[in-house]
Design a binder for these strands. Structure first.
Length: 875
DNA sequence: TGCGTCACG
DNA sequence: ACGTACGTGACGCAA
């Protein structure tokens, strides 16, 4: 059997399809790009799916073809190709060449004929062929070995025509498609056919008679006087039409299948075309940044020590790690750049150089870094405290635009028009294929990064100044990076034994529940598979499906809770899920993250990731340790102070987001509520339900709380109705009552959305920005989402600003008070410390003081705190 | 790798 | 009419 797979594409037809399927896009030079883009998408998809060994794109050669000698008006009356499409053909050809795909055109013949001829040759050799076109005529070429793909509305949606599929669809063989065209004609090609005979009649006649020729031989048997007359009157025209519709399978082509072998794209050339056409999404998805990275040399040397002959007062430094998990990753080496020359010191000598270590520690030596937190954390492992950080590329880029959330220097640089370096993925590979190349490659890669940091510093600082964000960057994010680095390096001690014992108990319970569930279901299955569970619940047991997901029945907790009264298995499943989550994520997951050397967990805070300005925590995530349910909360017993006799001390902001909302909206009612330190949910219930404080029931307060959440999230009646399990109308009434009671909030929400539409972005108290390009979209969903984001981001982001400022003030205060207390964790609105008992009294004073005064709002900030012998006990 | 689910603020 | 609450990360399953 042949392993060859031949892909034949109809270039003209596909370009037309792409052109009309996509809106007119242009690049910055005003060249239209939609057809090229659509063509590219289709090409990528089809190559991904088919893995062809041979490929050809066939084009029509010119206006006149051999068919015109049969019928002068062939394709007559057809609209001229729009100039917006014509101008794109050169780019399509260029792209095909860059992909390394053969293309071919032949005087007097159409693309169809080239494809027909080649597919016939392949077919005869028993080779597998796939034909791709937007023109259904080509389905006549389908055989056992040849499948014809026809694009369906859009460009990447494809219908596959095998002879069987043609049969199903028309009741005809592929070759009879020609006869059908002969009878019914084809308006788009100006093929006349027999007037008055359409698709249905044509198919019916062919089913009975087989072909146009046989039909005319047996005209007597055709029923219907009119039809017979029409057929007789147009016999010649029918024969001619059939000939016109027949694809030539013996065109005098000068190429053969063997010439079409496909060995893969020249990505540099492809990228070049993409860049020319500004295909941003495709460029982003590709690992290749630019061919410039291949051409522009960066001068550097690999050194055997870093000493004063290299070091200068100002340099960019980059610690090249094997991966982003710098707490455990291997250091590969250190790159330095002075803006002209680069140096690379392999890992084994880098921190061995005394000159270099003291250079790092001396604040008068200014360093430009890509990621100061990582640099400081890794240096600290080598007992070096880095000072004099003057620039942090990662943070600067993130402040300019938080949508730039990549950690990859190349990806960041690209955003600012700097292409002279490669992504980590393209140097090391990704996934299972990841491996370190030879040291010279690593050195060059790292030096390019160091150079990029140097070259981008000024540009980014100018941007920050323009946006009035320099203070946010330099006075908040940059100092915070050092603090977070210290928190990460210090880590938090976790009592392994506590987790192990909880794990044992959980496993026993889980096994028992599992057996109960199997007994109730009457069979064993994988409870963790939503798919299998759905079958058991909704098909075997016959419960009523309430909600669906893309892939089947929803078995989410809120759905199951509604079914709990229908069958006792539900309760067991919910319990199984709850305990299973604890076991897999929080027992087994956390145990895996405990470092053997110190028994601690060292999370990593991602400081340049979220679109709102919050931090995130990974490997492991310590910002989502269970607290709401007692069983889960017990996990916190394992988080203990790192020194005997010390305590955990936790402080959290009370209602910080609603206080921020009060500040920003200046709503009098809300401001007054916080000035009087009211219970805000009770106060909201009073206003929404028009009752006195004494009359507020717990249900009313719960509803009011949900309304407050809704306000912060960017309210929608549907969302609230889902959350409270009430009708949309009731939810709408709640919202209306709320906005009438807090008119300043309504005004603020309207203004913020309006402003975002004008400027394209929203800002926080410290001038953090988030761009919302979709807020002017004509797509309702995209626009609505952007509008809710516009309402939520200033609130969530300002709260993030406040706690970040508090962390900086707190770290300073601990030093100035000469305290041993360590800040360990941040969980969005709370800070967790460990402290010697003699410092508790001081903490009780300074922690609330510092946090409450981090940033002055027009309402007071309020902080609650607690301490105890584990995180669990800080309540 | 994407999806569903669920933990947190 | 449209179909959604905002922001995250980790796990197991099923392609």
């Amino acid at each position: 059997m042949s392993t060859e797979k031949i892909l034949l594409l109809d270039g003209n037809s596909l370009a037309y399809r792409a052109f009309f399927a996509l809106p007119l896009l242009t690049n910055e030079h005003g060249i239209h790009t939609n057809a090229v883009y659509g063509f590219t998408m289709m090409l990528q998809k089809i190559m991904d799916e088919e893995n062809p060994t041979h490929m050809l794109v066939a084009f029509d050669a010119g206006k006149t073809t051999f068919r015109h000698s049969t019928f002068g008006d062939y394709k007559g009356g057809r609209q001229k190709t729009p100039p917006e499409l014509s101008e794109q053909f050169p780019y399509i050809r260029k792209l095909i060449d860059a992909y390394g795909i053969k293309r071919y055109e032949l005087e007097m013949y159409e693309a169809d004929d080239i494809i027909g001829t080649l597919s016939k040759q392949a077919d005869e050799k028993g080779q597998q062929v796939v034909i791709v076109s937007g023109d259904k005529d080509l389905t006549q070429l389908a055989t056992d070995k040849t499948t014809v793909y026809i694009t369906r509305k859009g460009i990447t949606d494809i219908e596959k025509y095998t002879p069987e599929h043609v049969q199903e669809k028309y009741g005809l063989t592929p070759l009879q498609i020609i006869d059908m065209k002969g009878l019914m004609g084809d308006a788009s090609d100006n093929i006349p056919g027999v007037p008055g005979v359409g698709e249905k009649t044509a198919i019916k006649l062919l089913k009975e008679h087989g072909s146009v020729e046989d039909l005319y031989k047996a005209l007597d048997t055709v029923s219907g006087v009119k039809l017979k007359e029409k057929l007789i009157a147009n016999e010649e025209q029918a024969i001619m039409s059939k000939a016109l519709a027949t694809i030539e399978t013996a065109a005098p082509i000068q190429i053969s299948i063997d010439d079409l072998s496909y060995t893969g794209p020249n990505m540099e050339e492809v990228i070049e075309v993409w860049k020319e056409l500004a295909f941003k999404t495709l460029l982003e998805k590709s690992d290749y940044i630019s061919e410039e990275s291949e051409t522009t040399e960066v001068a550097f040397e690999i050194v055997e020590k870093i000493d004063s002959t290299i070091l200068d007062k100002v340099m960019s430094v980059h610690l090249e790690m094997y991966d982003g998990q710098y707490h455990t990753s291997e250091l590969l080496g250190i790159a330095l750049s002075d803006g002209e020359k680069g140096y690379f010191a392999p890992a084994d000598i880098a921190f061995q150089s005394k000159d270099f270590c003291s250079w790092l520690e001396n604040a008068t030596n200014k360093k430009y870094l890509a990621d100061s937190k990582a640099t400081q954390a890794v240096s600290r492992k080598h007992n070096v405290n880095v000072h004099g950080v003057e620039f942090d590329l990662l943070l600067a880029a993130y402040i300019v635009n938080p949508a730039i959330s990549s950690e990859d220097v190349a990806a960041i640089a690209k955003e600012f028009g700097y292409f002279n370096l490669l992504t980590n993925d393209s140097v090391y590979g990704k996934g299972a294929k990841k491996t370190a190349p030879e040291i010279e490659k690593i050195a060059e890669h790292a030096v390019r990064k160091a150079r990029a940091i140097w070259d981008l510093k000024e540009k980014l600082e100018v941007k920050l100044e323009e946006n009035e964000q320099y203070a946010l960057y330099k006075e908040i994010e940059l100092p915070l990076a050092s603090i977070l680095g210290t928190m990460e390096s210090d880590g938090v001690l976790v009592d392994k034994q506590i987790l192990v014992e909880m794990g044992h108990e959980l496993n026993i319970k889980l096994r028992a529940i599992e057996q109960d569930i199997y007994a109730l279901a009457g069979e064993t299955f994988n409870i963790n598979s939503p798919k299998q569970l759905g079958v058991i619940l909704f098909e075997k047991i016959g419960l009523t499906p309430i909600k669906k997901t893309k892939t089947g029945y929803s078995t989410a907790a809120d759905v199951l809770e509604k079914l709990a009264s229908e069958h006792e298995i539900i309760e067991q499943i919910l319990l199984y899920r709850q305990l299973g989550k604890l076991n897999s994520t929080y027992i087994e997951g956390l145990l895996k993250e405990i470092h053997e050397d110190d028994g601690k967990i060292h999370t990593r805070y991602q400081q340049a990731l979220t679109s709102t300005g919050r931090l995130s925590s990974i490997n492991p995530n310590l910002q989502n340790i269970p607290v709401r349910l007692e069983e889960g909360r017990k996990i916190r017993k394992a988080f203990v102070p790192s020194q005997p006799g010390w305590v955990m001390f936790a402080a959290d902001y009370s209602q910080i987001e609603l206080r921020v909302l009060a500040h920003m909206s200046k709503d009098e009612n809300l401001v007054e509520a916080f000035n009087n330190d009211l219970d805000i949910h009770t106060k909201t219930a009073m206003d929404v339900f028009h009752v006195e404080q004494e009359a507020v029931t717990s249900d009313m307060r719960r509803a009011a709380k949900a309304v407050n959440f809704g306000i912060v999230y960017g309210i929608s009646d549907y969302g609230l109705s889902q959350n409270l399990d009430i009708t949309r109308k009731e939810a709408a009434t709640f919202i209306e009552n709320y906005l009438n009671s807090f008119p300043g909030v309504k005004g603020y929400m309207d203004d913020i959305v309006h402003d975002a539409k004008q400027t394209g972005y929203v800002t926080t108290i410290l001038n953090r920005r988030r761009y919302l390009p979709e807020i002017t979209s004509s797509n309702f969903n995209l626009r609505s989402f952007a509008e809710r984001t516009a309402m939520n981001t200033p609130i969530q982001g300002s709260a993030a600003d406040i706690i970040k400022k508090a962390m900086i003030d707190m770290a300073e205060r601990l030093i100035s008070e000469n305290m041993q207390t360590k800040m360990l964790l941040q969980v969005h609105d709370e800070l967790i410390f460990e402290a010697p008992p003699e410092e508790i009294a001081m903490l009780e004073k300074i922690v609330p003081e510092v946090m409450e005064n981090a940033i002055k709002l027009i309402v007071p900030l309020k902080v609650d705190y607690a301490f105890g012998s584990s995180w669990y006990d800080t309540k």
